[in-house]
Design a protein around this nucleic acid. Structure first.
Lengths: 184, 184
DNA sequence: CGACAAAAACTAATATCATTAGCTTTAAAG
DNA sequence: CTTTAAAGCTAATGATATTAGTTTTTGTCG
């Protein structure tokens, strides 16, 4: 093993995640990331080009987010309560990592998304819970709506689209509760 | 008025809108826009820098979208039906203009949003309708949840996050109906 | 102990961007 | 016909992502 490396993919992706969360995606550059490691820009290309790096950052986001939600819905309680906790965990994660959260979900571009399958398995437990409310047949529809409601509320909040005051957390909770009640 | 201008702000913004919708935001540049008008890049800066241009594009998006929704909810029918039509109009608009739709709602950045007040008045009719379902006191919460559900479903769809098949249009409608029922 | 090989990082270059300062062209108004 | 100010142009700067080809490094093997 010649030449002990200063870099590796995992550390790079993690540092990129932090830099983007701190300074915004638009101010992020391969040059700045290289500087963080005391290395020339071109050296990064052994590991990632920018697109692949951002895909890796998005993969980190997915895993952390799903992990947080999974833990939240593992609590005791009736299905609606557990799902509300899951939605709240999602919102909490997003507010702690607003930039990378938006980055992960804003793109229309296949290349920036995690590989297929990374997330599909992970939502099955959620679907099982919501099936207790909506019934099996409608569980996919109900799950998608819940994801949509939570993600929509989070991203409209982060994008500054709710500018009329009021208690946003309360409105979030009321909306999720109403949605789940509607599926009963 | 010396020197008849080849350019004006409105035409530029509209052309930028079309270019972005066609080719994606990332491939859009001041240079390409200038070329479309047979003009040098620097000439655009009399009217817009890139940030202001994108804000103008986003303003166009807001106006068109709100217009489409306003027309949709003006139909006859009970409140839930009219709101469903509004949500569907929003989805239809987004699917016709996916790139600019995402562009308008993805940014955390104040500078890229339309001026305050441009959109606030416009949603008041919607709030009046949903108040018939939720009651006045909860009408803002209920409206925000509906916006969130519709926007969330649209943007998760455009971002390719619903990859498990099924009839997305049907799931969208079922979710909106369930949500509104939950507020009764 | 020294030469080799391959990994890791570097140098150098290209092409694309956004942006600014200052100059030139144009045509309407007097 | 001269003035003048608007509109567009030239030229330059400093980021940016990326690639090709070169140099450095050090474990391994003779």
């Amino acid at each position: 093993m010649p030449y002990p490396s200063k870099l590796d993919s995992e550390t790079l992706a993690s540092a990129a995640f932090d830099m983007i969360e701190q300074g915004g995606v638009d101010d992020f550059s391969m040059h700045k990331l290289a500087a963080e490691f005391g290395v020339k820009t071109a050296s990064l290309y052994r590991y990632f080009n920018k697109e692949a790096l951002i895909q890796a950052v998005n993969t980190l986001t997915y895993h952390s987010l799903l992990q947080a939600m999974y833990e939240a819905v593992s609590a005791e309680g009736d299905p609606a309560q557990r799902l509300l906790l899951g939605a709240k965990a999602m919102a909490a994660y997003a507010h702690q990592h607003p930039v990378t959260y938006m980055l992960a979900f804003r793109n229309t571009d296949d290349a920036l998304r995690p590989e297929e399958g990374a997330t599909e398995q992970a939502v099955l437990p959620l679907q099982a819970i919501i099936a207790e409310i909506s019934g099996e047949a409608d569980s996919l529809a109900a799950l998608r709506g819940l994801q949509a409601l939570a993600h929509g509320f989070i991203s409209l909040t982060l994008a500054g689209q709710y500018r009329r005051g009021g208690d946003l957390d309360a409105h979030f909770e009321q909306s999720v509760v109403a949605y789940l009640r509607g599926w009963e």
